[in-house]
């Protein structure tokens, strides 16, 4: 098991290295683009350009450029934004991470509880009215786009009913944990629910299918023949095996969301997270920021996948020796 974990994280480091090389090449070895001009910022004077060129080694071979770039990114942290000259990229990302993490972790807890709960209920109550009802609810969640649902939620909680039922809802934006857990959670409550609804629907549908398959497996019949209770068969045998694919999907979704895929939710609810940062950078073609956020996103996706694979091996003994 320990050997497996080490191997898995070794592979993750290799993947990260490959991604950083790829990102570097896309941004700095694309023909027709002067990377120095992109990094020096809007309307930079020739002196600054020359200084950037020297500092990033753009007159030297590509491998040297790569190493210098990584040094600016990870060691000296002094890459600056193209649009707002003087704004450092890395601290900007570091400031945005807690917002995104708060949003995604909270939503993940909600969607896992809801999704597993609904999926198990529907799978176990198959053949009764509960199953189609729960699944209808799931489809409902899947079909509501975040940008629409979020705006409707804002319309109701911030405007239409803000005077009466929803007077306790704080204005849009983020409240850091330093202002107290209560304020933090209150600001994030509706973003959490909005983001979680979509994923809860997907997970519930997936788990229901897995569970129904598992309940038809021979080992469930064996478990019944052993004289176990239906609840134990459902939870310890069928659900336990059905959760394996759910966990791997969760890792992918979680990594992608922390990496910036919660962009729509962040923009709609005015949360200054990584997604919003990427969104703004893309609008201005702010190359240094884009590069920073892409590498950051890749880091989280790869890390989440490595963690999931380790978890997967915990859940499924058949994977361990593979």
């Amino acid at each position: 098991m320990i050997g497996y974990i080490l191997r898995r994280f070794g592979a993750a480091v290799l993947v990260l290295f490959a991604i950083s090389v790829l990102v570097f090449l896309i941004f700095f070895a694309t023909p027709g683009v002067d990377p120095a001009a992109r990094i020096a910022g809007k309307n930079a004077d020739p002196a600054t350009l020359a200084q950037v060129r020297a500092s990033f080694g753009f007159d030297r071979p590509l491998p040297v450029q790569y190493v210098l770039m990584m040094k600016h990114l990870f060691v000296s942290h002094d890459l600056t934004s193209f649009v707002n000259r003087g704004t450092l990229v890395i601290p900007q990302i570091i400031d945005a991470v807690p917002v995104t993490l708060s949003l995604v972790v909270g939503a993940a807890v909600i969607w896992m509880v809801l999704g597993v709960g609904m999926g198990t209920l529907a799978g176990a109550m198959r053949g009764t009215l509960v199953d189609p009802l729960v699944m209808l609810l799931g489809v409902f969640g899947v079909s509501l786009p975040v940008y629409w649902l979020g705006e409707v939620v804002n319309l109701i909680t911030q405007k239409q009913l803000h005077g009466s039922v929803f007077s306790w809802v704080p204005p849009l934006g983020y409240a850091p944990l330093s202002q107290g857990v209560g304020q933090w959670a209150l600001h994030l409550l509706f973003p959490w629910l909005t983001l979680a609804l979509l994923y809860a629907g997907i997970y519930a549908r997936l788990l229901r299918g897995e569970l129904i398959n598992a309940l038809n497996e021979d080992y469930v019949r064996t478990a019944r023949a052993k004289g176990l209770s239906e609840r134990r068969i459902l939870i310890r045998h069928a659900l336990r095996c059905s959760l394996i694919p759910i966990v791997s999907l969760f890792g992918l979704d979680f990594g992608a969301l922390v990496g910036g895929a919660a962009l729509l939710t962040e923009v709609v609810f005015g949360l200054p997270g990584v997604g919003k940062l990427t969104y703004q950078a893309l609008q201005n073609l702010d190359l240094p920021v884009i590069m920073g956020t892409v590498l950051y996103a890749a880091f989280f996706v790869v890390l989440a996948n490595a963690v999931v694979d380790v978890l997967y091996a915990r859940l499924d003994p058949r994977v361990r020796r593979a």
């Binding site: 023949a225 052993k226 004289g227 336990r240 095996c241 499924d316």
Partner: peptide, 27 residues
């Protein structure tokens, strides 16, 4: 009743099935 039957299954009457490859919970 179900609960009474459960007490018999596995204790007084046991059953083994055809395909041992799938009869055990893999995890």
């Amino acid at each position: 009743k179900n609960a009474e039957m459960r007490a018999i299954r596995g204790r007084e009457i046991a059953m083994i099935f055809q395909d041992p490859m799938t009869a055990l919970t893999p995890v």
